[in-house]
Design a protein around this nucleic acid. Structure first.
Length: 271
DNA sequence: TTCCAGGCGTATC
DNA sequence: GATACGCATGGA
């Protein structure tokens, strides 16, 4: 990655990066596309507008060098070589196709708490509605509320979210996180199996949500969320499990596959 | 109108 | 441990 400072922000030269593919592939729910192709959104309390230039570089609008280096470089995971990952994955035919289809996906380094809440909300739900619920949450509190703030709510007072049966899960996650009964910071550095167990102490967090938190909120690339789409992928292409070339980075492979089959369901055949 | 959605808790065997 | 079923809500 190279960057330079201009009068209206930071311009970044970065391989293996596509704004829309990365921000709109189901790992984050608070980014919005404008008609000109730019995206606006937040990481914690940091606002960003980002767009691609005619020269294929990326403009971080009105961002200082300090903020770029301390916030956005990490958020977009610019220090990881996704070209190398895709090269490894491409030993496998299906993965090669998936990587070609969306070669600009990167795994964001998101906030663990926001990721936990977001994927609790995601269960048995569709993406437009997930975005709606999270949008109402952020609108009410003027940004994504902390566990401490949400711990002051009840299932009833969360009714404005129209989150359905998930409201009690959000309440439980807030109470356990705010009180210290579970520690997201500790989970982030635990061995994989222990981390899953720690996260699953929360009501409404099963294996899939735990893996999403580990992958998207703690950048644990070995975490491999299996949802309905990935079940179809496994059944159609990998009945004996994920190929050897993905070992240790199953989560990244999963995200290429997830986006590929959601956009091209026909490749799954009659499943 | 009916089906289904980036699952999980619970009951039952 | 496996399998079946209900769940709140709203997009398609």
């Amino acid at each position: 990655m190279d960057y330079r400072i201009t009068g209206n922000g930071i311009i970044v030269k970065q391989n293996d990066f596509d704004i829309a593919q990365t921000l709109d592939c189901g790992q984050a729910f608070r980014w919005n596309a404008a008609e000109d192709g730019s995206f606006e959104g937040f990481f914690l309390n940091h606002y960003l507008k980002i767009s691609e230039t005619d020269g294929g570089e990326f403009l971080f609008h009105n961002v200082s060098e300090e903020e770029f280096l301390s916030v956005w470089k990490d958020y977009f995971d610019f220090d990881t070589d996704y070209g190398e990952l895709k090269k490894r994955f491409s030993e496998d035919e299906t993965l090669a196709e998936a990587c070609r289809f969306a070669s600009g996906i990167r795994i964001l380094r998101q906030d663990p708490w926001e990721t936990l809440c977001s994927f609790i909300i995601s269960q048995n739900n569709n993406i437009p509605r997930i975005r709606g619920i999270i949008g109402r949450l952020c609108e009410r509190y003027g940004g994504f509320p902390s566990a401490e703030v949400l711990a002051g709510e009840t299932v009833e007072s969360l009714g404005f979210l129209r989150a359905g049966f998930r409201a009690k899960y959000i309440a439980d996650a807030s109470e356990k996180t705010a009180s210290g009964r579970i520690s997201l910071a500790a989970a982030a550095s635990m061995p994989y199996e222990e981390a899953v167990k720690e996260l699953m102490k929360i009501k409404g967090v099963g294996p899939k949500v735990a893996d999403c938190v580990l992958l998207f909120g703690m950048h644990r690339m070995e975490a491999y969320p299996v949802d309905v789409w990935i079940k179809r992928v496994l059944s159609r292409f990998y009945p004996d499990g994920m190929p050897e070339c993905t070992r240790g980075f199953e989560g990244a492979a999963q995200q290429y596959l997830f986006h590929y089959v959601r956009c091209n369901p026909r490749v799954l055949g009659d499943i």
